[in-house]
Design a protein around this nucleic acid. Sequence first.
RNA 1: GGGUCCUUAGCUCAGUGGAUAGAGCAACCGCCUUCUAAGCGGUCGGCCACUGGUUCGAAUCCAGUAGGACCCGCCA
Length: 585
Amino acid sequence: MKSTLIDLTSRLQAALIAAFGSELAQTDPILVPTQNPKFGDYQANVAMSLAKPLRQKPREIAVQIVEHLDVSGLCEPPEIAGPGFINLKLKTDYLTAQLKTMQKSDRLAVEAVKQPQKVIVDFSSPNIAKEMHVGHLRSTIIGDSLARTLAFLGHDVLRLNHVGDWGTQFGMLITHLRQVCPEALTSSEAVDLGDLVAFYKEAKQRFDQDEAFKAASREAVVELQSGGEEALRAWQILCEQSRREFQKIYDRLNIQITERGESFYNPLLPDVVKDLKSLELLETDQGAEVVFLTGFTNKEGNPQPLIIQKSNGGYNYATTDLAAIRYRIQRDEADRIIYVTDAGQANHFMQIFQVARRAGWLPDTVEVVHVPFGLVQGEDGKKFKTRSGETVRLRDLLDEAVKRARQDVEQRIQAEGRSETPEFIQQVAEKVGIGAVKYADLSQNRTSDYIFSFDKMLALQGNTAPYMLYAYVRVQGISRKGGIDFSQLGTDAPVILADEAEFAIAKHLLQFDETLAAVEQELLPNRLCQYLFELSQKYNQFYDRCDVLQAAEPQRTSRLILCDLTARTLKLGLSLLGIEVLERM
RNA sequence: GGGUCCUUAGCUCAGUGGAUAGAGCAACCGCCUUCUAAGCGGUCGGCCACUGGUUCGAAUCCAGUAGGACCCGCCA
């Protein structure tokens, strides 16, 4: 099915050429949905912008465009309003035909992209030997949602977990464990991740205070990097253990991701240094090998260096990230690489991208993009922490959300005098709780800091997961009550639009593909959230105003089709956010 | 010193160079004999931080100012 926006845009472009010649072939007709229904459904704003170059009055330009415009299959006759707006109102026949096409399609007639790309989404990326915390939440669910959306649109998506599985912290940890808990280094059963986190904190403290310990730790890093068997074995055990814990979280969040940690790039690091050197980008500064950056200056006003190799010969994350870019472009053949990390790393990525570009590793045909997100804050506006000031563990946060969701469901069931099995209650609580956490995060523009509030995300009204899940449940309620199998609704049965609420839903349903295209471009999942919220609102209005099961045929079947399309759009849209629907709640 | 981002209703936030800037929450007023009221309708609420500029048109683009968050050589 052709997207309405794309179809109308190309028709407007044709009209521009027909009216004013081929020099306007590249002119954007500036077609946007109207904000006020009295102006129709779409408006083209191009006439005003052409007034100066064409030296004509905008309204006259609009008249000429409309004279050459063929939209008779889609729209009522175009109207020119105000200074030169071209207002387009979709024909009812067009709306119903499009809806029928959606109904027959197993993907709601959303076309796959014409030029699929190899896209890498780098997200989540927790650190080994540390617990996943609220800071990993945003990267994980935003990255997952983007990956799902791009894959649905037909791209070849590789989801990579760039876990922090290498570096000085392991020297520290191994040294400490050798002294206080050697069994942790020989068996992954000996301690759990919680213990490891405690050991890590102790090790860090010693590292900062104890010179001898610091030296021993550095020794251990060297041991590890040179492939010392015992150190390597210890490292593997630590990784395995962390991995098991991470997997529990990923299972619970329903996240699929391929682990390819920093250590993966270790063998490639010497070549990064070597090649930068032969390109004469590398310079020695205060004992370290650095690339001086353009556009970044230090406090003295001199060009700022990016450290590629430390004075002790070790590498740091810039080196790893450069190696990763090369690998992803050369070996993975990525066309687009998306990094979902916090906004604080914006500088870092600009620097990495600059060096990769200057080294010729990053051609213009490849798009690298940092997708930043803001901090998670508590309701006091400060960094999100527990009452005792600790970082909030992700598993505790998810437990809490589910617990609150369960209390809510139980209360409601009691109030309504229903009787439900414990399994049902548990399932609803889990899906509502996890869905609420995800939706609350995704529904905000990711670039701003995000105030975390259980009360708001689990609220039963407003732009929340429960609201949308409820709209979906309402549709399923109709199907149960009427014994309707939506998949068996006649494909020949007509869609009839009469009530204002029916028109509103119909038009909104047809904008699903435009919304997904916007997410693909802007990488902002909150656009999809906004769309789904509006769809839910429109459905609830429809539900309020229009009887479905009691309606007379053929209106009854027509309305059932609208219900079905709404439910399928909600289900698909929510799935692209990583949120599962419920049949009852 | 340099850089990035932010500032929109009491609160939390949307907002694509276009017509009268929108939601949700909170507050207040209504609507359940009828598909789950976790819903719907209504009222109230605005110097889009400020000052300029670009433009036929600016919350949106540019510059400056103020306030805030974050990053900037051997952590990631």
